[in-house]
Design a protein around this nucleic acid. Structure first.
Length: 438
DNA sequence: CCTCCACAGGAAGCGCAGGAGT
DNA sequence: ACTCCTGCGCTTCCTGTGGAGG
């Protein structure tokens, strides 16, 4: 009895000492200290953000001049030509348009011209209706986000444009997304909206990432939309270096980012079709990593880490924001992958999906619907599906997971609903395996 | 050469949400 | 209260199809 109380006390004391030792450490002290004496790398974070429009766009002055020339009649209050711009992502299309709009707007405001500029991203707007709603919004007409017929919204837009006697120059970014989903009806209507206008009107600047987009357009729409055309070529590695140098000079303290780091970022981004946005993101994340680790200079290892982090982050972000049933499909694929089924056929996947659903007590969707979900996941690059024929044994889609199992597991663990069945899914795997070995 | 599997994927339509106009 | 509108997620129904095996 006595002995045990003594030993208990010793244990308690030890535990207390241990706790105390740990308790004395202020968990925030290090962070605070680090933050205070942090070697400074960033001078101005804003500059490295993706939506920042620099005052100078290297290697794009020719494009700026051309676009300015094309739109210049609007400053004399006569209608300019519609412009069609295409080029891959991160080639500076949006930046050039926004830059020209900004400069023109300054002039228009100064001269008190009835000139408005608007920028609409069709992919973000999503539907024809919302594009129309945003057009209305940009000339100060409020419309409800649903409830009206498209024709009604269009009419309101047209009549207020006429009534206000103003020019609206609007940029429809990622216009290809709109046309692919809804056809070119809206574009057709928009290109003819000026008919019967004495003054004022609408001017379109269409921007597309898809070079083959033009083939989808009705010739009448194409001819009026692309009265003028601008093509943006991808940046070369050397051009990317210039862009990064210029940004870096504004964003970082001198000496914080050596030239070879910039060259590396440019080279890595150039490998992926010269995407300037990628290059800038890479440099920014590398600098953040360097700063967090307490370094005063960004090094190559930070860039490599950043590249990894961006890649992982993108996958995680994409997967964890998927709708429920897409996640369930992914879970089924995970189940099959753990079952060593690398190339699952769609029938098998659907079976696994039904199992996962019953585990959660969720009503499964039809096979047709799941088929569409698989196609969507394919487009996202999460998996690859390929239609193969097995002769007598039918035609099916061979589905290969393009994401690592670990990454999917991470997503499942972070999902409140799916983490509850993660264990069961793993059990299902062993049960299934036992069954197959028998 | 023909058959027939096991799906792919298009078309149409349903029910609901969210809203306007009357 | 009622009608009409669109978007969205989904189902049902349907036609199409590459190629192994008969």
């Amino acid at each position: 009895m006595k002995k045990s109380t003594i030993s208990k006390n010793i244990h308690l004391q030890e535990a207390y000492l241990h706790l105390n030792k740990r308790g004395l450490e202020d968990p925030l002290r290090d962070v605070v200290n680090k933050a205070l004496q942090r070697p400074k790398i960033f001078k101005d974070r804003q500059v490295m953000r993706s939506d920042y429009i620099p005052g100078n766009l290297p290697h794009r002055s020719e494009h700026i001049r051309r676009l300015g020339e094309i739109l210049s009649p609007s400053l004399r209050f006569s209608r300019a030509s519609n412009v069609f711009i295409y080029g891959k992502t991160g080639t500076g299309k949006t930046a050039v348009v926004k830059y020209v709009f900004k400069r023109f707007k300054e002039v228009a405001d100064l001269e008190r011209l009835p000139l408005q500029f608007s920028y609409i991203n069709c992919r973000i707007a999503g539907t024809e209706y919302r594009v129309l709603a945003e057009l209305c919004d940009s000339i100060g007409v409020r419309v409800p986000f649903t409830g009206l017929s498209k024709a009604e919204v269009f009419n309101r837009f047209r009549s207020s444009l006429k009534e206000k006697n103003m020019f609206l120059i609007t940029c429809l970014d990622e216009i290809d997304v709109l046309v692919k989903n809804y056809g070119d009806n809206l574009l057709y209507e928009l290109t003819r909206i000026n008919e019967g206008f004495e003054a004022g009107g609408l001017n379109l600047v269409g921007v597309s990432n898809d070079l083959h987009f033009k083939e989808l357009l009705d010739p009448r729409v194409l001819s009026s939309l692309s009265e003028e055309e601008l093509v943006f070529h991808p940046y070369t590695a050397l051009e990317l270096v210039d862009i990064l140098m210029e940004r870096a000079a504004m964003a970082f303290y001198p000496e914080a980012v050596p030239e070879e780091v910039i060259r590396l970022c440019a080279a890595l981004a150039a490998q992926e079709h010269g995407d300037a946005r990628r290059a800038i993101d890479l440099l920014r994340v590398a600098a953040e990593i360097a700063e967090r680790s307490g370094a005063s200079v960004v090094e190559e290892k930070h860039v490599r880490l950043a590249q990894n982090m961006i890649e992982r982050g993108r996958v995680f972000e994409a997967l964890s924001t998927l709708p429920l049933h897409s996640k369930l499909v992914l879970t089924s694929l995970y189940l099959l992958a753990r079952n060593n089924v690398q190339n699952s056929m769609s029938g098998l996947l659907y079976e696994a999906y039904r199992q996962v659903c019953s585990l959660l007590g969720i009503e499964p969707l039809s096979d047709r619907r799941v088929s569409t979900l698989i196609s969507e996941l394919d487009m996202l690059g999460v998996l690859k599906s390929e239609v193969v024929s097995m002769g007598r044994y039918g035609r099916s889609r061979k589905i290969t997971l393009m994401t690592s199992i670990d990454e999917i597991e991470q997503v499942l663990e972070n999902d409140d609903l799916l983490k509850t069945i993660l264990k069961d899914v793993k059990n299902l795997y062993t049960v299934k395996k036992e069954a197959s070995t028998k």
